[in-house]
Design a protein around this nucleic acid. Structure first.
Lengths: 195, 195
DNA sequence: TTGATTTCTTAATCTAGATTAAGCCATTGT
DNA sequence: ACAATGGCTTAATCTAGATTAAGAAATCAA
């Protein structure tokens, strides 16, 4: 019985005590050390993970060997490679723990069983997927039309807890600039030029 | 009773004849002339639209007055401003018909009623939302790490029917380059330099 | 604790793509 | 049929951000 999980889900859909109990039995707990993988590209994302503690990161390497970070997942966020998870085919993204983390894993087969046992969980996942899509749309618009500085500001608003804890090169790969350029922007911000 | 709508939905979930009939009663048909709006930014996206004929486009203007195209919707695609639709609050995007189009409108209240009457329709929308999110993730990675030429190639693969029918400035605003630069890339492609 | 590795910063140089501007071609409305 | 408006092309110039490189600071391993 994981209180954080239940509380997070109840923000969106109703669950009786019995349902909450039953729900937890579909999940499996796992601890990850810093820099440990949940899975890598090429492996199948068997599960979607709910972060109980720590921070996870979803990223991939492009042709030139640079990393591109799709998502950070701090406490109470969900994380997986969605394409791999829904089709159960090899992942294009990899997921690692940025710091020591505890996650609750829901396998794809358990998720589908869960949908038939507790239909409100299908609503729950529809809603959080819709919200993720909306957030992604905003980010895509920013990638096409906002400056690097504006994207950095958006990052700071979206993930305030990560601004000073996550490596800058990871933040740079999330907003889509080189680490050197992020460093330059930050020193300009400190010198009070703008922001 | 709209055959294209039913056929499209049946690619993902099962519908009996009676269910298909009932389903159609939730939709309202609307014809749009070329350049007519489904809605603009500031209005509420009351409905999600299924495109029966024609092509729709979702876009917004950034601060410098440049357009940013989020999505094209050719025949049998769904289109709306998702954030506005799910929260029934003013839209940040606008949706217009690129050419004369026929759409089937599903209002938010009808959608929620539909979910309770035909639960497989909740599965249907969860699945297409998941797929849209996966596509968006790929596009975001491209925006951060692929060149303009590669993004243009991806566009050509994703929307082959639109490459020669949609205005180039709209394609440019979708892949995130200036119309002038797209024109330059195309002439380099024709001169056989690369692609 | 110390050496080794990784991360961050700074600065010079370079480039993909933006901007500006001008001319041409295609549609559209009257 | 004809202007007029909007879309496309080409070319010159400009700039945000990449790349390269090298030193400083932090983190890690033993």
């Amino acid at each position: 019985m994981n209180a954080l999980l239940i509380q997070t889900i109840r923000r969106r859909v109703a669950l009786s005590e019995a349902e909450a109990d039953s729900l937890c039995s579909f999940f499996e707990k796992r601890s990850l050390k810093k820099k440990e993988w949940l899975f890598r590209e090429g492996e199948v994302a068997h599960s979607v993970a709910f972060v109980c503690s720590g921070v996870m990161r979803v990223f991939a390497d492009d042709e030139q060997g640079h990393e591109s970070t799709l998502q950070f997942a701090p406490v109470d966020w969900w994380v997986t490679d969605l394409a791999s998870f829904i089709k159960q085919e090899p992942a294009l993204w990899k997921v690692e723990a940025i710091e020591a983390s505890e996650v609750l894993l829901l396998s794809r087969s358990n998720q589908l069983r869960l949908f038939s046992v507790l239909p409100q969980m299908e609503s729950y996942f529809r809603v959080i997927t819709e919200n993720a899509l909306v957030a992604q749309q905003q980010r895509l618009q920013d990638a096409n039309s906002a400056s690097a500085l504006e994207r950095y500001k958006s990052f700071c608003l979206k993930y305030p807890s990560l601004v000073d804890t996550v490596a800058q090169k990871h933040i740079a790969s999330y907003i889509g600039v080189s680490p050197e350029f992020l460093s330059k922007m930050k020193s300009e911000i400190i010198r009070g030029k703008r922001f």
